[in-house]
């Protein structure tokens, strides 16, 4: 079937939208953009380690992304400056990953597939991982929604209401690691943060409440994925970057429309 890989790619893109929409909104609200970026960059080290030790790539990415996110959280809690800590860890992990991947014996690794994603090569098993991960992230955020939102609004108000903001931060960190692992195949490590931020930032302009912003982020994410795929197919452009360009275009359109 000629269209089969396109259907799988479309399903992967829409699945990704469900994973990045809710989490991306929190990333925007809590100014965690660079945190997301650093965690995503660490994924390439996860890929290298997974290949070296012959474990599934998703598992390797998940574990390294989680380690990265927890390390940053811990170092910042120790009083290190957030931006410098992220800068050091993010680029070190990316560079270490690129070095490590060159030592993977035997196989010729297509590096660009991990850096920019390879959505057109998504298989049915990948789809299970993507939709399973998206469902997990959505369930996690839905379950903690009110507490996450209160902790995001004000840590003091949250604590006075008996909510532990650190625990909620941990929930988001966990969700971020899952999203990174899920998004790797679709847009690659370098553009994961873009998919977290751009749909949510565009949705901000259309929303009066947090719930609406999450819904818009999902819709815009899905539209970006489908539009990017279509553009990629007709223009023979790389799919991952095309999806991000589509998201950016929607962002610009939304901002211009809101200004008028």
């Amino acid at each position: 079937m000629l269209d089969d890989f396109l259907i799988r790619a479309a399903l992967a893109g829409v699945g990704l939208a469900f994973a990045v929409g809710p989490l991306g909104s929190f990333v925007v609200w809590r100014r965690m953009a660079y945190f997301g970026d650093a965690t995503a960059h660490a994924a390439i080290l996860g890929v290298a380690l997974a290949l070296l030790f012959s474990v599934p790539v998703t598992l390797g990415t998940l574990l390294v992304a989680l380690t990265m996110a927890l390390s940053v959280s811990w170092l910042v809690a120790q009083g290190y400056a957030m931006d410098a800590t992220l800068g050091v860890l993010s680029h070190s992990a990316l560079a270490a990953g690129l070095v490590a991947i060159s030592f993977v014996p035997g196989v010729r690794v297509d590096l660009s597939a991990f850096l920019f994603g390879d959505i057109l090569a998504v298989g049915w098993s990948d789809l299970w991982v993507i939709w399973g991960g998206a469902a997990l992230v959505c369930a996690l955020i839905f379950w903690r929604w009110s507490r996450l939102l209160t902790a995001t609004l004000s840590e003091d108000l949250a604590m006075a209401s008996g909510i532990n903001p650190r625990r909620e931060q941990l929930v988001l960190t966990l969700a971020l690691a899952v999203v990174v692992a899920v998004a790797l195949k679709v847009v690659g490590t370098l553009l994961i943060a873009a998919m977290l931020i751009i749909p949510a930032a565009a949705g901000r302009n259309l929303s009066r409440n947090p719930e609406a912003m999450v819904a818009w982020a999902i819709v815009i994410g899905a539209a970006s994925a489908l539009g990017g795929l279509a553009a990629s197919f007709t223009l023979d452009a790389p799919a991952g970057p095309s999806i991000v360009v589509a998201a950016a275009a929607i962002f610009v359109i939304v901002v211009v429309l809101r200004r008028r």
């Binding site: 609200w29 809590r30 100014r31 995001t152 609004l153 004000s154 108000l157 930032a201 901000r204 912003m213």
Partner: peptide, 9 residues
Amino acid sequence: LALAPSLPL
């Protein structure tokens, strides 16, 4: 209340 401008509420 230091309200983040990115949070619609």
